[in-house]
């Protein structure tokens, strides 16, 4: 029973934080709530026995979220106060989109027979490593090519047209 209570607390707090990401008035608060959501997602992974995934989740997303925060501040123009407005518009359309996602997801979950709890062995770093470098090698390499292309694109965009200028 107690694992269920723990999961309930984490999941409840996770959902509440996710709502706060959308509902918060201040952009910085929104992004900080997003970081809470991502850390709690890592906790859910750990509760499910995927400890490696949980650790990687925290390591990768902290850098990502903090970068997002910097973009949020740099792209919102000149700010004289700590309040960066983050207004929510189109509540009705948003609710419609959420419902359109919720109904099929819930019906799929209800329709699935998960069967009895088989008590899966925990997935370790070793399992993930052999899976990534074995059967899924092509996808793994394709991903790294994609990231390389994104990085070259970023460098090209950020490059000055005349290297001698401005130094």
């Amino acid at each position: 029973m107690s694992p269920l209570i723990g999961f309930g607390l984490v999941a409840g707090f996770l959902l509440a934080s996710a709502v706060m990401v959308v509902r918060s008035d201040n952009l910085v608060h929104s992004v900080l709530w997003l970081s809470v959501v991502l850390v709690l997602t890592a906790v859910v992974f750990i509760l499910l026995g995927a400890t490696f995934l949980g650790g990687i989740q925290i390591i990768l997303y902290t850098g990502g979220v903090i970068t997002l925060m910097l973009f949020g501040i740099m792209l919102t123009g000149k700010q004289d106060t700590v309040e960066i407005p983050n207004p929510s518009e189109g509540h009705l359309a948003g609710a419609g989109a959420a419902l359109a996602f919720l109904v099929p997801t819930l019906s799929a979950i209800w329709a699935t027979d998960f069967g009895p709890d088989k008590g899966l062995p925990p997935v370790t770093a070793k399992h993930i490593g052999t899976a990534v470098l074995g059967p899924h090698l092509v996808a793994f390499e394709a991903l790294s090519v994609l990231l390389l292309a994104a990085m070259i694109g970023a460098i090209v965009l950020a490059r000055r047209s005349d290297p001698g200028e401005g130094r």
Binding site: A42, I56, I58, I59, T124, A125
Partner: peptide, 14 residues
Amino acid sequence: LDIGILWVLSMAGL
């Protein structure tokens, strides 16, 4: 923890 070093690095990252 079996992910010991990952735990340290994730705390340092936060």
